[in-house]
Simulated scan of single mutants.
Amino acid sequence: MLAVTGLNQYYGESHTLWDLDVEFPEGKCSVIMGRNGVGKTTLLNCVMGLLPLKSGVINFNGTDLVKLSAEQRAPQGIGYVPQGRQIFPMLTVEENLRIGLPVRKDKAKQIPGFIYELFPVLKEMLGRRGGDLSGGQQQQLAIGRALVIDPKLLILDEPTEGIQPNVVQEIGDVIRKLNQEMGLTVLLVEQKLPFARRVGDRFCIMDRGRVVAQDEIENLNENLIKTYLTV
């Protein structure tokens, strides 16, 4: 589904990603983990074309994304929910959701009904401005907006950050349903270990710009946690 090979990235003179090789298989929920500042969000931004690369290949279903602009990547079938959600605060919930419709290959004109089934609160608040929603509601809106494009891969950067516990539970339920019942491939960055264990099939641990471990989530042992994840 998504394979990254020989990826190097710099911020100015700082080498941030080092010869990074990692694969995220189709149909799985993969969790990228690691302490703050190890390159997790940088990796996602490289996948989405938001940061330039020094070298490397990012292969998505046979297409090298590096050759495509950022605007050309979503139409390949990638839904992206960035850290901090980045909804449009002055647009209504409905307007935020409709932004993804032109990307759909079937040229649908209506927001898919299943999004309201996943997030009933969005249907109740269609006319409300995005900036007036709570943090948890904005996260649900951001995920719904990403799903509107009918993605094959959903990428989430810290979906539980700053969210109240009951909404974290709901978001976890949605991720599991999308992955396990609807067959959507999911890739997320996540700091909360219990959440990662609950929703993930596989883990990828990063440290200092490198992938240091990747395996099935049940093999995430205490030694790895102590070495790379505890603060």
Rank of each mutant, 00 (worst) to 15 (best):
Q9N: 14
Y10H: 04
E13V: 15
E23M: 14
K28A: 11
S30V: 02
V31K: 00
M33T: 05
R35A: 04
N36Y: 03
V38Y: 03
L44Y: 03
N45F: 09
L51H: 12
I58T: 00
G62R: 00
D64K: 05
L65V: 04
L65F: 00
K67Y: 07
L68C: 09
A70R: 12
Q76V: 00
G84S: 01
I87A: 05
L91H: 10
V93D: 06
N96P: 05
L97T: 05
L101N: 08
V103A: 10
K105T: 02
A108W: 11
I115T: 12
P120S: 08
E124N: 10
R129L: 14
G131L: 04
G136P: 13
Q140W: 13
A142L: 08
P151R: 05
L156V: 09
L156K: 07
D157E: 01
P159E: 05
I163S: 01
N166S: 15
V168E: 06
G172D: 12
D173A: 09
D173S: 14
N179V: 12
V189E: 04
V189A: 01
P194N: 06
R197K: 10
D201A: 00
M206Y: 01
D207H: 12
V212A: 02
V212F: 07
A213R: 09
A213D: 04
A213H: 09
Q214K: 11
E216T: 14
N221K: 02
N221F: 00
N223H: 12
N223S: 15
Y228H: 05
V231N: 14
